[in-house]
């Protein structure tokens, strides 16, 4: 059996019960997966003046902006239901939350349309031009 024979199944019916959660894309790598007191420490200190959002994380100044999902697209957070005991077994994930936008943060520099994360939002539209079927 090939290692590639195992697949990851997404239980899409779980999307109906999925939470709507706030997402923040941070300009640093946090070596941690797990709980974080975002609503106590982070959200109340975010300031939003005329579309310029600011906050501090670990004493460093961040500047942020809301980013919307491209039209026709939905944001999903997938979470593994149970870790399989071997790599031959299928992995099963569920939709733990859904989102239509998120906040992305730069370290110090004001967000611009040339930032990678914003430029990448262009991809789905181009993908459709590349991959749409050719009609006669």
């Amino acid at each position: 059996m090939s290692a590639n024979s195992s697949v990851t199944v997404v239980q899409l019916d779980s999307a109906a019960q999925a939470n709507k959660e706030q997402l923040h894309l941070l300009p640093c790598e946090i070596e941690h997966n797990g709980p974080a007191e975002v609503s106590r420490f982070y959200s109340p200190t975010v300031k939003d003046h005329k579309h310029e959002m600011t906050v501090s994380f670990r004493g460093r100044p961040l500047k942020g902006q809301e980013v919307n999902c491209p039209q026709g697209y939905t944001g999903l957070v997938l979470k593994e239901v149970q870790r399989p005991s071997s790599d031959q077994e299928d992995r099963i994930v569920k939709v733990s939350s859904v989102f239509n936008n998120f906040t992305r943060w730069n370290l110090e520099t004001p967000p611009t349309s040339d930032d990678g994360v914003v430029m990448a939002m262009m991809w789905p539209k181009l993908a459709e031009a590349i991959h749409g079927p050719i009609d006669e």
Partner: peptide
Amino acid sequence: RFSWSTAQTLLDTKAVTVHWD
């Protein structure tokens, strides 16, 4: 004041590590 070495040292030993570019 996060920039004080007292705070930094405590964070280095007791908080999760954060890396910046």
